[in-house]
């Protein structure tokens, strides 16, 4: 949990805050968790990621490209097991589309942040992200 938060928030102290906040939220919402409808691990990570995203949206990270971010995205892709469909399908996307999808999930980047870092117009980023998601979904089903 801490690793996921650290990767999104970049700072260990913020990551620990995020994990602690997420644990408190999980305790509060435990009665909403329904094993029939969801995967417990997915549920916990969703709460953690949402907490990190809220923290990120309140902080202006600017539009500078951080080499550590680039590495985090590459590492995330490289560490996906070869046997996984998600990996094969991400591999089938254009490199920029793959990078954009991965930066949104792994780093919590918004459309605007992705456009800023790629030096591309926001509208185009949004449309090729959508096309990429359609392709990914078709590939995964």
């Amino acid at each position: 949990m801490l690793g996921v938060a650290r990767r999104m928030l970049r700072r260990s102290d913020l990551a620990e805050d995020a994990v602690q906040d997420a644990l408190v939220l999980i305790w509060r919402r435990a009665h909403q968790y329904d094993p029939e409808r969801g995967h417990a691990r997915g549920w916990i990570f969703t709460i953690l990621r949402n907490r990190c995203l809220t923290m990120l949206r309140h902080e202006d990270r600017g539009e500078t490209t951080d080499p550590a971010d680039e590495r985090a995205v590459d590492d995330a892709f490289d560490r996906l097991p070869q046997s996984l469909d998600l990996r094969a399908c991400l591999d089938g996307l254009e490199p920029e589309t793959r990078r954009a999808i991965l930066s949104s999930y792994v780093l919590g980047h918004s459309h605007g942040e992705i456009a800023g870092r790629m030096d591309a117009p926001l509208g185009s980023v949004k449309s090729w992200l959508r096309r990429g998601l359609v392709k990914l979904r078709e590939c995964l089903t």
């Binding site: 690793g3 996921v4 650290r6 990621r49 590492d75 995330a76 892709f77 560490r79 998600l86 991965l102």
Partner: peptide, 8 residues
């Protein structure tokens, strides 16, 4: 979800 397992 598998992407969460790739975090250090």
């Amino acid at each position: 979800l598998p992407l969460d397992d790739t975090a250090p």
